[in-house]
């Protein structure tokens, strides 16, 4: 049980808290878990989320920013007035809960199919793209001097990382080769401006309410690099969930997204966005193949992982639609 440790922990940062209730694991891989619980307080319970690597797990894997960096970024975003949960506490060794942090729980929906289909989000959908444009601009404008230590990424490096990972699968995919070749031929070079990049700004990591976006989550893949990467990633067809004529998350247009970004005083480079959309499509395809590898080789021998391997072909058709469109 986790509640005794949480009870001791919350008393240290939430004066008057008498305990916790309703602790439940929301998701968990081998090295990272997310828990929801309520802090019990005489003046009313407070919803909270624990994100942690359980005791005994060391440094974060290769691409991950690390939980301490995630907490810092989330708090920076919150302080800048962006939709971001307040960080309530960063775990210390005395807490006995491992590494990680506790944040305020934000109510809302993260499941794309509900956001795209349910009546309660009907009013939010038409305004989301513009709103998210402003939010992305806010993220890219966070003060560089306050950022934690993050890996830096360029287009050239990302192409080579994807190529290496694809080759490690030892399974020929002519469409992926075509995409890699296209990316190398169209590499725009280093960005004139290097900013914080969220790295995974898409459905699943955005809490949406009937009033629009309420929180940006999951800074695990945050890094510094070309700000256009985030804008290309949210346009990847894999995040449209069937609504393929609405390029931004299946709910909005590029024009609205770009306009929101510009309203916040930043400029979009549409060619670079297109480049990163191709990169993002290939990246999701490579990730699908990686799931299949972990299914076959790793400890997670689940049907879900196996079946995600069979979704790589979705990115192949999307790459062909981008790079070799057929006449109508």
């Amino acid at each position: 049980m986790i509640e005794p440790e949480l009870t001791r922990c919350v008393a240290s940062f939430h004066p008057g808290a008498t305990g916790v209730t309703g602790a439940a694991k929301l998701s968990g891989g081998a090295s990272q878990e997310t828990w929801t619980f309520d802090i019990v307080h005489p003046s009313g319970n407070v919803g909270a989320i624990l994100r942690r690597a359980p005791p005994g797990y060391g440094a974060a894997p290769g691409r991950a920013a690390g939980l301490d960096a995630e907490a810092t970024l989330m708090q920076l975003a919150h302080d800048a007035g962006l939709p971001s949960p307040k960080v309530m506490h960063v775990l210390t060794p005395e807490d006995g809960l491992g590494r990680g942090f506790i944040m305020a729980r934000v109510e809302g929906e993260t499941i794309a199919r509900k956001i795209l289909r349910d009546e309660e989000f009907a009013k939010a959908r038409p305004m989301l793209a513009r709103q998210l444009g402003r939010v992305i601009a806010g993220i890219h404008g966070l003060p560089q001097a306050k950022l934690p230590q993050l890996r830096s990424l360029t287009a050239t490096k990302e192409i080579e990382d994807l190529a290496r990972e694809y080759q490690s699968f030892n399974w020929p995919r002519p469409v992926f080769e075509l995409a890699l070749r296209w990316l190398r031929d169209h590499d725009p070079g280093p960005s004139s401006e290097v900013t914080l990049v969220h790295g995974d700004f898409r459905h699943g990591n955005l809490i949406i309410g009937p009033d629009g976006v309420r929180a940006v989550l999951d800074w695990e893949l945050a890094h510094t690099g070309d700000p256009m990467e985030d804008i290309g990633w949210i346009c990847v067809n894999s995040w449209r969930f069937g609504e393929i004529d609405k390029p931004v998350g299946g709910f909005g247009t590029r024009e609205d997204l770009f306009a929101g970004y510009a309203e916040a005083g930043r400029k979009v480079d549409p060619d670079r966005v297109m480049f990163w959309e191709v990169m993002g499509t290939l990246r999701w395809g490579v990730m699908c193949c990686g799931m299949m590898q972990r299914f076959r080789l790793g400890p997670d021998h689940s049907m879900e992982r196996a079946m995600i391997g069979r979704r790589a072909s979705e990115t192949e058709i999307d790459l062909l639609r981008l790079l070799a469109p057929r006449g109508k």
């Binding site: 002519p174 469409v175 075509l178 067809n237 449209r240 069937g242 609504e243 393929i244 069979r310 979704r311 072909s313 979705e314 192949e316 058709i317 999307d318 062909l320 639609r321 070799a324 057929r326 109508k328």
Partner: peptide, 29 residues
């Protein structure tokens, strides 16, 4: 291009025949 398209369409027919891009391309061949 024709080869890559046909091969990919044949994969989708097995993997994900309900994928929206695939259904769209079936109609625009």
């Amino acid at each position: 291009p024709e080869h890559l398209w046909q091969t990919t369409m044949d994969k989708l027919a097995v993997d994900q025949p309900n994928y929206a891009s695939y259904k769209r391309e079936l109609g625009t061949k």
